[in-house]
């Protein structure tokens, strides 16, 4: 669906903008998670087929001509995996931030010269 594709691209760009402009380390991670959500929406909307339904065979979807009635299952499977990995990566990034805060007592990226660009 083109509307969700545009929405996903908008979220991806907003997330990148936040990662590039924000000074606060936690806000950078929030920007990463917004960009993550945007990417997932892009992938799922590329797998959508007009007027078709979820790839689960039950009373609504006949087993004989299921191929004509369901959306693409592969993007769903990929995004399912990616969401769980996103949580794990976010947890690791946040624990790095907690450790950095313990060393320098600051959340601003300006106080970490080795990370500045």
């Amino acid at each position: 669906m083109i509307s969700t594709l545009i929405l996903g691209i908008a979220l991806l760009i907003i997330g990148f903008y936040a990662m590039l402009t924000q000074k606060n380390l936690i806000k950078i991670v929030i920007g990463f998670s917004i960009a993550d959500t945007g990417t997932h929406i892009i992938i799922v909307s590329l797998g959508y087929l007009r007027g078709k339904t979820a790839p689960i065979i039950d009373n609504a979807v006949n087993a004989v001509n299921a191929v004509q009635e369901v959306v693409d299952p592969i993007p769903s499977a990929l995004v399912l995996t990616a969401i769980v990995i996103g949580l794990a990566v976010t947890a690791v990034m946040l624990s790095f931030i907690v450790e950095m805060y313990k060393k320098n007592k600051s959340l601003s990226i300006d106080d970490y010269q080795e990370l500045k660009w």
Partner: peptide, 29 residues
Amino acid sequence: LGSPDVAMTEASIGSGLTTVIFLFALHRV
């Protein structure tokens, strides 16, 4: 978009556990 599996995962992980982990990190900081 016809992906209830992804919807369940996003509702539980994306809005549940991720928020909790952010809040834990914020509390520590």
